Amino acid sequence: MVKPLQNSASWSDTLKTRKAHLNSLLKTIDARAGKTSQIQTLTVKAIKAEMAHIESQLNRRK
């Protein structure tokens, strides 16, 4: 069973880590030269949307 996080500082750290991970994935996808497929475009949009959601959660916690 997964224990829930106990304090808001650790939750903020988790969000920051997730955002950094998504940012590195975004750089990996964008680094590829050439044509971008529709799947790549949708993936980039989904990653950016998730990063925006994480950012809003971090701003709410401040």
Rank of each mutant, 00 (worst) to 15 (best):
Q38K: 07
L15Q: 01
Q40K: 05
A46Q: 15
G34S: 02
R61S: 02
E55I: 03
N7W: 00
R18V: 09
R32V: 11
A33L: 11
S12K: 11
S37H: 03
L15A: 05
S24Q: 15
V2Q: 01
V2K: 00
L42P: 04
L26M: 06
L5S: 01
H53T: 11
T28C: 06
L42M: 12
A20G: 15
A31S: 05
K45M: 14
A33E: 07
L42E: 15
A33P: 06
S12F: 10
M1D: 00
G34I: 05
L25M: 14
G34H: 03
A33T: 09
V2H: 01
I29W: 03
S24V: 12
Q6K: 02
E55Q: 04
T28G: 11
R32A: 10
E55V: 04
D30Y: 06
K27L: 08
V44T: 14
L25P: 01
T43F: 06
L26S: 01
T36D: 09
N59D: 07
T41F: 11
S10H: 09
Q38W: 08
L26K: 03
Q57E: 11
N59S: 11
K62H: 13
A20L: 13
T14R: 12
A31V: 05
T28Y: 10
I47E: 07
N23Y: 14
E55C: 01
L42Q: 15
A20T: 14
I39V: 08
T43Q: 07
K19G: 11
I29L: 08
S56A: 04
A31T: 05
W11N: 09
N23L: 14
S8G: 03
L58M: 00
I47H: 07
S12V: 12
A52C: 07
R18G: 09
M1Q: 01
G34V: 01
T14E: 13
R32Y: 10
L58E: 00
A20R: 12
S12L: 14
T14H: 10
L25Q: 11
R18E: 12
V2D: 03
S8P: 05
D13R: 14
K16M: 14
K16H: 12
L26I: 05
S12P: 07
E55L: 02
K48Y: 12
T14M: 10
I39A: 08
R32D: 13
L58S: 00
I39C: 05
S12R: 15
K48W: 12
Q57C: 06
R60L: 07
K3M: 02
A49Q: 11
K35S: 13
V44Y: 06
A46Y: 14
S56W: 01
L5M: 01
T36C: 10
K35Y: 09
R32P: 06
S10F: 05
N23V: 13
S8F: 04
A52R: 06
E50D: 12
L15P: 03
V2F: 04
A52N: 09
I47D: 00
A20H: 13
I39S: 05
S37A: 04
M1N: 01
A49I: 11
L25D: 09
A31E: 02
S24L: 13
T36Y: 12
I54F: 00
T28V: 10
V44D: 05
A9Q: 07
S8A: 11
G34A: 04
L26H: 03
K62M: 09
S24I: 11
A20Q: 15
Q6D: 00
A52W: 08
A20F: 12
L26P: 02
S12H: 12
W11L: 15
